[in-house]
Amino acid sequence: MIVFDYADNLRHTHGDLVDQVYILRAQSFLERRGWSVEVKDNREIDRFDAMNPLYVLSVAPSGQLLASLRLLPTTGPHMLSDVFPDTMTGARIIRHPLILESSRFCVDTAAAKNHMAAGVNTVTGELLVGLFEIALNAAIVNVVSVYDLFVERILRRAGCRFNRLGEPVAYDGLKTVAGVFEVSQVTIDSIRQRSDIHGDVFAMAEGESRLSVRA
Rank of each mutant, 00 (worst) to 15 (best):
C106V: 11
A118M: 14
A112I: 11
S103E: 06
M88W: 06
V120L: 05
P61K: 09
S81H: 10
V39L: 06
G90A: 13
R47G: 09
L100I: 04
E38R: 09
G76L: 11
V107W: 08
G90P: 06
V120F: 04
V107M: 13
P73R: 08
T124Y: 12
K40M: 13
D46S: 10
E44A: 05
V56G: 04
T122Y: 06
F84D: 01
R104Y: 03
L131R: 05
L69W: 01
T124L: 15
I134Y: 09
L66S: 04
T87D: 06
V107F: 11
R104C: 05
R92L: 13
L128M: 09
A67T: 03
Q64I: 13
F105K: 01
G125C: 08
S68A: 15
R104E: 03
R95F: 00
C106I: 08
D86G: 02
M116Y: 09
G119M: 05
L80A: 11
E38V: 14
N121H: 12
H78T: 05
L65Y: 12
A91C: 03
L128P: 00
L57R: 02
T124P: 05
G76P: 02
Q64H: 15
L128S: 04
L66Q: 10
R43W: 04
H115K: 12
V123S: 09
